[in-house]
Design a binder for these strands. Structure first.
Lengths: 123, 123
DNA sequence: CTTCTGCTTAGAAGGACATCTAATCAGGGA
DNA sequence: TCCCTGATTAGATGTCCTTCTAAGCAGAAG
């Protein structure tokens, strides 16, 4: 594992949305990350992995935390991995997953807007 | 406009993923936000709105920035609005959109993990 | 009042996605 | 070697999503 064409740290930006508009190219790339986060199961999986002391979680523990089948969990983990948000390694019988902080940070920074809108408030 | 049941500032967390695991409830709520961001068109729309000096953009300008039809742009704006990421107001013939910074910040903070993983690096 | 423009809603078509069962692969132990 | 457990892959199914065209609504202007 730890296999294949992960974008490593793709070209897309690290500046907040408020600074300048995204190119179509960047938008396509970044949207993949957010799409991966856009499912409750994957978000919980990611949080279970990210919040783990030691940084690693065995798949078997993740599976136990849901009422979904193993293949379904495996599918969601793959989506997260292909989005570059997590990576994994097999050790003996078990497979361990961990987060890729740089990727999460990049997405975080994109959304990091000043707490109060420039002006134009109300509703 | 500015209508209906926006979650205003929903119960879901503001602490990073690394601090503690999400409840299923929070995950469902937060995933809605990320799902809305998980499309290249919506991400570009949001960036066009967020990066605008003055904080507001007319729909007509947004439509011009894409090769998609008006109804399609309108659909994506609705998704962003229902996710609580933007809001809008009609003024005369035109409709103006602006971002809701608090909502973006909440999502940003969730993904705001320390730059280096606790340990467990490599790949 | 009628008509024009800007925008949204309705409905349909095609593709993408989440989930399951069944089958396969990888390692460890008898 | 054979089997057992942990995990992924393959294939199927029902649902959701993106996009379009056509129709409707809101305000301004003649």
């Amino acid at each position: 594992m730890s296999r294949q064409e992960l974008p490593i740290l793709d070209a897309s930006c690290c500046t907040p949305l408020t600074s300048e508009a995204l190119t179509e190219e960047s938008a396509v790339d970044l949207a993949k990350g957010f799409k991966a986060l856009g499912d409750p199961v994957r978000l919980r999986l990611l949080s279970l992995i990210a919040s783990r002391k030691g940084g690693e979680v065995c798949v078997c523990e993740l599976t136990d935390a849901f009422t979904l089948t193993g293949p379904t969990i495996s599918h969601h983990l793959r989506v997260l991995r292909e989005a570059g948000l997590i990576d994994c390694q097999r050790r003996g019988t078990w497979v361990y997953y961990w987060i890729i902080p740089a990727k999460l940070s990049a997405l975080s920074q994109l959304l990091d807007v000043p707490a109060a809108s420039p002006d134009a408030v109300s509703a």
